[in-house]
Design a protein around this nucleic acid. Structure first.
Lengths: 176, 176
DNA sequence: GTCTATAATTTGATAGAC
DNA sequence: GTCTATCAAATTATAGAC
């Protein structure tokens, strides 16, 4: 636990959520760890592979937080997602990893783009099944969009209340 | 009209909307134009300055599209914004410039971050004044978030219907 | 696992000729 | 306005010693 590889993933995740795929380098990570970039390559041979590993871990952790409360449904599920997203920007003021990478999806290595797509696919699947009703899928898309966009606004304004205002109506939107 | 500087802004805008601030270089632009990177520096001395110029032009153009129909209000204003955002991804499959830059706001030169903030400030101000009502500001934030997030989903899935589903409820959400 | 050393490429930027 | 030439720095990545 807390080995070098894991801590490298921590640093990479923070940098990607701050400045995107093009905004971090192996030398940055190495310097912050007090090692050399060649040692980073020992743990993660390529940048694309490392980013894919960051995305996989991020997805697993996200659904460890969100999925256990599977008995809850509808508005409560939305509230759980909303609170998970809010804590991201509350803790360190950074973007959702997949929101950041998804925006730049066109310029990403294919293996990274696949991980991002998998994240959103699972979010929409999970949310829509818990929300239910004829517009469940559309509502799941809407919730995910509002959450990611809410983070963008909070980042642009450097003000978390932008996220709160943007997402306040999600819980009380009423179900079909 | 259509001078070198203008065409350089076109190319820079396309690249930024595709891969972000870190995803374009003066040499890329020069190569696409058939000139050398030194000639790009003649028109735009620094990358930060050029990106700020791209953002300024993007904002001006956006409000030339959206603002003239100032007589419209409420749901119609939201529909106008929605259609403006949709045309962005419909035409070239790319992100909104400010959504892309806003996500990475933490790693941007200050002069660029200021332009992005100005864009969203004006959007929220314009939208909220046209929507009206006690929750006008929150609703404006919500609309902007859903539109930017809808673009992210459409990019991640490479499917414009993700945007359509995510934003379908914006028009018919009903006003307070 | 970490290091030194290095290769090969790319980057933002400048000087100065034409 | 565009060019050649160049710089100093950063980038991803590899080879091989310890």
């Amino acid at each position: 636990m807390g080995g070098t590889a894991e801590r490298l993933l921590d640093l990479a995740e923070a940098r990607i959520r701050e400045a995107g795929y093009g905004g971090f380098s192996f030398r940055d990570l190495a310097a912050e760890m007090g090692i050399k970039s060649a040692s980073v390559h020992h743990h993660f041979p390529t940048k694309a592979g490392m980013t894919a590993a960051v995305a996989r871990r991020y997805r697993e952790r996200f659904f460890e937080i969100v999925a256990p409360r599977r008995d809850k449904s509808g508005d409560e599920a939305i509230a759980i997602y909303r609170s998970a997203f809010r804590s991201a920007i509350e803790q360190d003021g950074r973007m959702c990893l997949n929101g950041m990478l998804g925006a730049a999806a066109g310029g990403l290595p294919p293996e990274v783009a696949e991980e991002v797509k998998a994240f959103f696919r699972r979010c929409v699947g999970d949310l829509s099944s818990r929300v239910g009703g004829p517009d469940a899928v559309a509502r799941a898309f809407h919730v995910m969009a509002a959450l990611e966009g809410g983070l963008i606004l909070a980042r642009a304004f450097r003000d978390i209340t932008a996220f709160d205002q943007a997402t306040a109506s999600l819980n009380t939107q009423g179900q079909p």
